[in-house]
Design a binder for these strands. Structure first.
Length: 578
RNA sequence: GCGCCUGUAGCUCAGCUGGAUAGAGCAACUGCCUUCUAAGCAGUGGGUCAGGAGUUCGAAUCUCUUCAGGCGCGCCA
């Protein structure tokens, strides 16, 4: 790529300067920005190299830029060099070099924009990982869209990415799910239904389906009033104890059935949403403290060997305060059971033991308090805690008819991911989920996502793609050769703005991947669509001369490739017709 | 109280690895369809980038501070 070459020339120039220490060089290199310009008025490529070097070396940036200009102008791809403002360098490429991006895109097609900056790094990204106690809701949808888009971005920069879902199939929430289903079996009325149990319709469905498929029957006598307790948590615990011990067969049959069912529905929702995990890791496989060979025991033993644990009040603690945590955390309760934290420690050890160069967790923002303690546990086991990167996803609020859509999980009525997809479709959902930086609150406007006005950027972008496709079909029917001369030789310059925007694409992908910011792609697409629509209005393409027409279509086909590739990074299919 | 995030045009948001006049869309007003998809284009007006201080040749962007809003702080999962 042309940018790479120019960067090399600039770096060589900097290195040749007098009185340059190694430190200066590193600092200068890290601050230099040599980019495709945002605006053709500033040349094709612009660099702040001389400003940065001038500042650090305490010399006049303008004098530096004069020298650099002499060197750059020698390059065959560069037609002109301008010095602007306090010492910016603005480069103009020759027609040939300028046009080369079109050939490059047409040649590389779906790999255009990709790089190998990730150098085959093995990265695991864990996302969604919702508790298997009910259907995915719109909050999970955001994590799903974000995690999947990040995986695509990282793959595009050459990383080997594995997507994983962590299934919390051990612990109390599974007991509550099981209990909820059993209580539906024995027809506890809605009024008597425990406050802490799950009440959604899906529970009733699971219950009914189990009844019709299994010979096991809930025929024991059960009087809910015997379990009453002012604290709903204690109430449900009493019921769990009873059901577990007195009806073991039924308990395990239903537990398995319920988990399988919920998991199946989660998998279906994700598949529908165009998200596919490579691995499903079950918490239960981490084992328990009763088994010395389990992952849980091994990680706790390791921490103990390293002298990081201590006993207090009958419990075993990890001294996470040694690594910036607010307080120390319990690994094993005074009754001998492991905490959720202990499972998490074992799980993260397991992940790193699998040999990933980096593990990424996509977590709900409400979990941000957990980052320190996990990092502390990894550091305590002598892992490099920088191998773990946690990305937080803020909540999404749905708006419809100008007001917030209520989402009450307690009553079991919520707007599920499946509802959202049914409402506005997979692609528009993914698009709007990704339209804002993940760690910030998102107001998701359902009316906007369905609107047919320009304010609906999703359609605005798709419309550009569809228009190109439509032109292309007509062009193909005209059977004209594929000369690109009039753009190459500069006779026809009306697509220059489009070509110029195309040149930015690889650097946009790189930036989006480096920062894990898929929304950068969205705003780039919006600008790209605007450039295209503007061109389309000003130029009646099909009535151009044959030479111009075929030239234009080569540029537009390159543009179409970029639209397609960029949308694909977001997991969205481009529309050919609208 | 502690931690994280946010505050940019009337509204919804970009821009934040410091850079050249702070950008879009909506809303308001004005134009553009006998020709390729008007789900479009062109234009006008609209800003003390929450307030203050600092670092810098240069700050919406970095540091400190004040104010306002959101979220999180269990031997829950």
């Amino acid at each position: 790529m042309i940018l790479y070459k120019i960067n090399k020339i600039i770096f060589e120039f900097i290195e040749s300067l007098d009185d340059l220490t190694n430190e200066d060089l590193i600092s200068i290199k890290s601050k230099i920005n040599t980019l495709i310009s945002e605006n053709l008025e500033r040349g094709h490529i612009t660099s702040n190299a001389c400003l940065v070097a001038g500042n650090i070396l305490k010399t006049n940036p303008k004098a530096l830029s004069e020298k650099l200009k002499e060197i750059l102008i020698e390059d065959a791809a560069i037609e002109n060099v301008e010095i602007a403002g306090p010492g910016f360098i603005n480069l103009y490429l020759t027609r040939e070099a300028f046009y080369s991006v079109v050939d490059d895109a047409l040649l590389k097609e779906e790999t255009f924009g990709n790089s190998n900056s990730g150098k085959d790094k093995k990265i695991q990204i864990e996302f969604v990982s919702a508790n298997p106690t009910g259907p995915l809701h719109v909050g999970h949808g955001r994590g799903a869209a974000y995690g999947d888009a990040c995986a695509r971005l990282l793959s595009a920069t050459g990383c080997k990415v594995e997507k994983e879902y962590y299934v919390n199939d051990a612990g109390r929430q599974m007991d509550i799910l099981t209990t909820s289903v059993i209580l539906r079996q024995i027809n506890i009325s809605d009024d008597d239904f425990p406050a802490s149990a799950y009440k959604g319709d899906y529970i009733k469905n699971i219950s009914n389906n189990f009844k019709s498929q299994s010979s096991k029957d809930a025929t024991f006598s059960f009087d809910i009033s015997k379990f009453s307790d002012a604290d709903p948590e204690k109430q449900i615990d009493k019921i769990i104890d009873f059901l577990k011990t007195d009806n073991e067969d039924l308990w395990f049959a239903i537990k398995k059935y319920a988990l399988d069912n919920v998991l199946m529905s989660i998998k279906n929702d994700l598949e529908e949403f165009n998200v596919k995990h490579d691995e499903w890791f079950f918490e239960s496989t981490l084992g328990s403290t009763l088994n010395q060979d389990s992952d849980i025991s091994k990680s706790i033993n390791l921490l103990t060997e390293k002298g990081k644990t201590f006993e207090k009040d009958g419990a075993i603690w990890l001294q996470t305060t040694a690594f910036e945590d607010d307080k120390d955390r319990v690994l094993i309760r005074d009754d001998g059971r492991a905490t959720y934290f202990a499972s998490d420690v074992a799980y993260h050890k397991n992940k790193l033991d699998r040999g990933f160069d980096k593990i990424i967790n996509i977590w709900g923002a409400d979990h941000h308090g957990y980052i320190k303690r996990i990092e502390a546990s990894l550091a305590s086991m002598n892992f490099d805690k920088n191998k773990l990167q946690v990305c937080l996803v803020q909540f999404a609020n749905l708006f419809q008819g100008g007001s917030k859509v209520k989402m009450s999980t307690r009553s079991g009525e919520f707007f599920t991911l499946a509802d959202l997809i049914e409402n506005i479709g997979v692609d528009a959902s993914r698009f709007y989920y990704l339209s804002k930086q993940a760690d910030q609150h998102l107001d998701f406007d359902l009316d906007l996502a369905k609107s047919d006005k320009k304010e609906n950027i999703y359609y605005y972008i798709q419309y550009a793609h569809a228009r190109i496709e439509s032109l292309n079909e007509k062009f193909i029917n005209m059977s004209i050769g594929s000369s690109k001369n009039t753009i190459k030789n500069g006779e026809y310059k009306n697509c220059d703005k489009i070509i110029h925007e195309l040149m930015r694409y690889p650097e946009i992908v790189q930036r989006a991947a480096d920062n894990m910011h898929p929304h950068i792609i969205i705003y780039y697409l919006r600008d790209l669509a605007h450039t295209f629509h503007s061109f389309y209005n000003d130029n009646h393409v099909l009535s151009e001369s044959e030479d111009n027409l075929s030239s234009i279509m080569s540029a537009l086909n390159a543009l179409k490739i970029v639209f397609g590739n960029a949308l694909n990074l977001l997991g969205i299919s481009p529309l050919n017709k609208m």
